[in-house]
C-alpha cells in the first residue's frame, strides 16, 4: 500500500468517524427534545392530542360572535382606537426616554472614546441587569407601589429599553472611524465637543434605526403590560377575554395586528431611508 492510498483510507476513516459523531449528536439532541416534550406534556393540565383537536374551537367561537348580526363590530373597533393610542403613547414615551438614557449609558460603556475607564464595566453590568428583567415583573412591582396607571408600565419599558438599546448603541460606538476624533483632539476640542462633532454624526443614523426597531417591540410590550392593569389596549383585551365577548376580542386583535403591521412598515421605510439598509432584528429581541 503506497502512502497516497493509506492517506485516502485514513481520510475516509476520519470522514466516517466525523459522520458517526454527527449522527450521534443529532440523535442525542432529538432524544433530549423528545424527553423535554414528554416532561412538558406531563406538566400540562391538558394533553397535546386533545389540545390539537380543540385548537380551532376558540377562534371559531370568536368568529361566530363577530359575524353575529347584532355584533356591531365596526363601532366596537372604532371605540377601541383611543385605548390603542394610549398604548402607542406609552411605547413612544418609553422608547424616547429609554433611548436618551441609553445614549448616556452607551457613551459611559464604550472603550476608546476617552471615558473614565472604571466606569465602563459598571455601566455594562448595569445594562445587563436592566436587560435581564422581564418588563412584566417591574411593572407588577410598581403597580403595587404606585397603583394602577400607565406610569409603571412606562417605567418598566424605560428600564428595559435602556438596557437593550444601551448595549446596541455602545456596539455602534465601538465601530466608529476614529479619524474625526483624532482630528478634533488636535484642535484642542473638549470631551463634549469631541463627542458631539466626532462621534454623534457617525452613529446617529444607526441609533435612530435601532430606536425605531425598539419602538415596534415596545408597542407589543406595552400591550402586554396593559394585561396586568397598566391601561391601554391590554386592559381592554383582558376585560373582553374575561367576559368572553367574541366580537370585542376580534376587534381588539385586528386593531393590535393592524397597528403592529403599520408601525412595522413605517419604521422599515424610515430605517431604509436613514441608513439605506435593514439591521438584523434578532440582535434586538
Amino acid at each position: 500500500m503506497n502512502s497516497a492510498e493509506s492517506f485516502s483510507l485514513q481520510l475516509s476513516l476520519e470522514e466516517k468517524k466525523r459522520r458517526f459523531y454527527g449522527v450521534l449528536i443529532a440523535a442525542g439532541c432529538l432524544f433530549l427534545l423528545f424527553k423535554a416534550f414528554v416532561i412538558a406534556e406531563d406538566m400540562n393540565s391538558g394533553s397535546f392530542a386533545k389540545g390539537m383537536s380543540q385548537f380551532l374551537d376558540y377562534p371559531a367561537d370568536i368568529l361566530k360572535d363577530t359575524l353575529a348580526p347584532n355584533a356591531n363590530w365596526f363601532a366596537k373597533f372604532r371605540g377601541y382606537i383611543p385605548a390603542m393610542l394610549e398604548t402607542i403613547n406609552m411605547a413612544a414615551i418609553g422608547t424616547l426616554i429609554g433611548g436618551i438614557i441609553a445614549i448616556l449609558f452607551a457613551f459611559a460603556s464604550t472603550r476608546n472614546i476617552h471615558v473614565w475607564p472604571p466606569l465602563i464595566p459598571v455601566a455594562r453590568r448595569m445594562m445587563d441587569i436592566m436587560r435581564a428583567f422581564p418588563e412584566l415583573i417591574i411593572a407588577l412591582f410598581l403597580i403595587f407601589v404606585l397603583g394602577t396607571s400607565p406610569v409603571p408600565a412606562i417605567v418598566a419599558i424605560i428600564l428595559h429599553t435602556t438596557g437593550a438599546l444601551g448595549k446596541l448603541f455602545s456596539e455602534v460606538n465601538e465601530n466608529i472611524d476614529r479619524g474625526p476624533l483624532e482630528g478634533l483632539e488636535s484642535t484642542g476640542a473638549n470631551w463634549l465637543k469631541r463627542m458631539r462633532f466626532g462621534v454623534l454624526p457617525q452613529v446617529s443614523s444607526n441609533y435612530l434605526s435601532y430606536a425605531l426597531l425598539r419602538f415596534e417591540i415596545n408597542i407589543r410590550a406595552s400591550a402586554i403590560l396593559g394585561f396586568v392593569g397598566a391601561g391601554g389596549i391590554g386592559t381592554e383585551l383582558r376585560k373582553a377575554i374575561g367576559w368572553s365577548q367574541g366580537a370585542d376580542i376580534s376587534a381588539l386583535f385586528v386593531l393590535l395586528f393592524l397597528t403592529i403591521v403599520a408601525i412595522d412598515q413605517l419604521s422599515s421605510v424610515l430605517r431604509r431611508k436613514v441608513i439605506g439598509q435593514d439591521l438584523t432584528p434578532g440582535r434586538l429581541a
Binding site: N44, S45, F48, G51, P59, I241
Partner: peptide, 17 residues
C-alpha cells in the same frame, strides 16, 4: 401573548401552551 391566549383554551394551563 395573543397566541398563548388562544392556545390556553385548547391545551390548558402548562408549558405546552
Amino acid at each position: 401573548l395573543i397566541w398563548s391566549l388562544i392556545f390556553i383554551r385548547a391545551f390548558g394551563l402548562g408549558p405546552l401552551t
